[in-house]
Amino acid sequence: MIVLDTVPSGALLLAVGVLFAAGVYLLLERSLTRVLLGFVLLGNGVNLAILVAGGRAGAPPITGGAGATEPMSDPLAQAMILTSIVITLALVAFVLAMAYRSWQLHEHDEVQDDLEDARIARLAEHDVPSYADSDALGSGAMLDEEAVAARDEVAFPDAATRRRPDSSARGGGDT
């Protein structure tokens, strides 16, 4: 029985840490594309972490090589990483399609406000209780249109306002 060398490599651990930090940072962004990049980084970080769990690098993950005494890497960890890479690939493709669809519909790909948040914010603004059909309150702009128009992104300030002039007053997604 060959005992695996279980002391992890420092460089790999550092890479895991950096990938996680960058991934979490990007995940907190509003744009779906950046969220997706964050997800990819996090996924790679986790894959590396599993690789670290499989022992030191350098040996082949197959048995029956040159001799029985030769050290061998843990193949199970690598099999799990391969599976998760495939899954991540499929999910990335789906989210990309969704981000593109969002861009098609709204000319941006930001994750939009929860409608209920918008509703509660509007109720608070008008200082009214919530037993009426609150969609009908106020300016007449529907909640879903408002949620579409509310944006954090400042790189293209006119994109939303040009198309929907009524949204400029409450852009910024501060709900």
């Binding site: 995940l27 972490a49 599993i50 769990a53 799990m80 998760s84 989210v95 669809r101 969002s102």
Partner: peptide, 30 residues
Amino acid sequence: VERIRAGSIYVVVALLSSILFLLAVGLAYG
């Protein structure tokens, strides 16, 4: 429009939970 809005929230949250789960599996294996 409505489903893409709701779907993006759902998908992002679910992706995060998947990553956490995978990390836990990796830690358990380690």
